Simulated scan of single mutants.
Amino acid sequence: MPANAQALGNYSQVDCSTTFQWLQRTSPTEAGECTEAAWASDNPGYNVDAVPAARLKKVQMAVGPAC
């Protein structure tokens, strides 16, 4: 499956945790998985609709062994 991207808000509506905290708790950790997140302001011009998605710059958090 090609890498994909999403633009997310600052907080999880489920439990009011920050998006980074929520991603750290809920992202897959199996072999081959990688979830990265960064501030949009640190990645100007990033195209979330590109397939495959480009790697983020200034990553704030990463989960998974393939990161």
Results as ranks from 00 to 15, higher is better:
17 S>K: 15
37 A>P: 01
53 A>S: 04
64 G>W: 00
36 E>F: 01
22 W>E: 03
57 K>S: 14
38 A>Y: 01
53 A>Q: 00
17 S>E: 15
25 R>H: 10
43 N>D: 09
58 K>S: 14
49 D>Y: 14
55 R>Y: 09
3 A>Q: 11
16 C>R: 12
44 P>Q: 03
39 W>H: 07
43 N>K: 04
34 C>E: 02
30 E>P: 01
40 A>Q: 14
15 D>C: 06
39 W>G: 02
67 C>Y: 04
16 C>L: 12
40 A>K: 13
12 S>P: 05
23 L>N: 02
43 N>V: 03
3 A>L: 08
53 A>K: 01
17 S>H: 12
48 V>G: 06
33 E>P: 01
7 A>V: 14
45 G>E: 12
30 E>G: 13
20 F>N: 05
19 T>R: 10
5 A>Y: 02
58 K>P: 02
67 C>N: 05
42 D>Q: 08
26 T>F: 05
14 V>P: 01
7 A>L: 14
45 G>P: 08
14 V>T: 11
38 A>L: 03
12 S>F: 02
43 N>H: 07
16 C>H: 14
59 V>Y: 00
33 E>V: 07
30 E>C: 09
57 K>T: 14
63 V>R: 00
62 A>Y: 00
7 A>T: 12
3 A>K: 12
52 P>A: 08
26 T>W: 06
1 M>L: 13
27 S>F: 04
36 E>P: 01
8 L>H: 05
59 V>P: 00
15 D>T: 07
57 K>F: 06
38 A>C: 07
37 A>C: 06
23 L>E: 03
47 N>D: 15
14 V>N: 09
16 C>D: 13
8 L>A: 09
36 E>G: 02
6 Q>I: 09
43 N>G: 04
62 A>I: 00
5 A>N: 07
61 M>Y: 04
40 A>N: 08
9 G>I: 00
50 A>R: 15
48 V>I: 14
40 A>S: 13
18 T>C: 09
57 K>V: 10
53 A>D: 00
18 T>S: 15
30 E>W: 12
51 V>H: 05
18 T>I: 07
67 C>Q: 06
34 C>W: 00
41 S>I: 10
40 A>V: 15
48 V>Y: 05
14 V>Y: 12
46 Y>G: 02
23 L>C: 05
23 L>Q: 03
40 A>E: 11
12 S>N: 13
34 C>V: 04
17 S>V: 13
15 D>W: 08
